[in-house]
Design a protein around this nucleic acid. Structure first.
Lengths: 160, 160
DNA sequence: TATATTTAGTGCGATATGATACTAACAGGA
DNA sequence: TCCTGTTAGTATCATATCGCACTAAATATA
């Protein structure tokens, strides 16, 4: 690691990884027994962007293999948090809909996280967080494009 | 999510999660078949902080259950990247040592990531990343303390 | 239209993660 | 020293992740 630029990114991704793990643990402490972060991610996606979406589109959005999403959706379906219906526009596909229980659980989880974020806000000034959001977004978009760009084959996995 | 402060943190953790996944995919594309991010994390920890460490200390450092680390170490051991020896100072414990192959693989992986980081540096100015590292570190430390603080029992999982 | 290719979803198997429960070893107090 | 509680590691089991291969449906091409 002789290159100082590379070192900065290396440390950046290291911090990202640790924070992701800590925040995931926090989220999962607020979810009902047996539900983990990926389940909430699906609910959150459907609430924020609207339900009635195809699993394949969600798998792409989350950058996970479609087999993983199939499994996640099966658990959510079993617990009555989403329903899967045929996609009228494409016989191969399905559409995922939130149930009332799913929508309710999402709201309850957000509510349960409120005190945690309030406590965090006492230690970390949100005004320090807001300005770094655009940087994070730029990194995310760049990594995302690199993954999709054909010429950046080196960055591609065989997920899909 | 009525509280604007909470919203900032929510979006922050959302970006963190996505970047973590994309960067993990990138790292794993640079690792040999069958090795994934947690394996590299162990090698990196031992190279940077020195080997001859007890598994329990590493489990705490990574915030993973010790059973998960046992499994990770078993794979690294099978592939000849680390060795496990008795801990002379504690009969219950062991010490993890890097093999030459393990140290070599770590270096090779860093080298392999060089071009990726160089490409990233063309899109994202490292000078924009450096100043946010202290903020990320502050968030990480705060979450970490919250997890350990007894009075913040709500933040605690039952990992350990 | 007929055929070939691509795509959405899933079954299956291998590996990973983590909760529970256990053993062996350490540590503190009587 | 003995006893009690704690701690490090692991076996086991349930669930999660994801690559591979398959089916059915859509799309492209001849």
């Amino acid at each position: 690691m002789p290159d100082p630029d590379a070192r900065v990114f290396f440390e950046f991704f290291n911090e990202i990884g640790i924070i992701e793990q800590l925040s995931r643990t926090l989220l999962e402490a607020r979810l009902p027994e047996g539900l983990i972060a990926p389940h909430f991610t699906v609910l959150n996606h459907l609430v924020r962007l609207g339900d009635g979406r195809a699993p394949i589109d969600m798998a792409r959005a989350f950058q996970v293999p479609k087999t993983s999403l199939t499994h996640t959706l099966k658990t959510l379906q079993t617990r009555g948090l989403v329903t899967l219906a045929p996609n009228p526009g494409d016989g191969r596909s399905k559409l995922v809909w939130l149930t009332d229980a799913g929508r309710r659980l999402h709201g309850q989880t957000i509510t349960a996280l409120g005190p945690d974020f309030a406590a965090l806000a006492e230690k970390i000034d949100p005004a320090d967080i807001a300005p770094i959001l655009p940087v994070l977004k730029a990194v995310r978009v760049t990594l995302d494009k690199a993954r999709d760009a054909p010429q950046a084959a080196v960055l591609q996995s065989h997920k899909g």
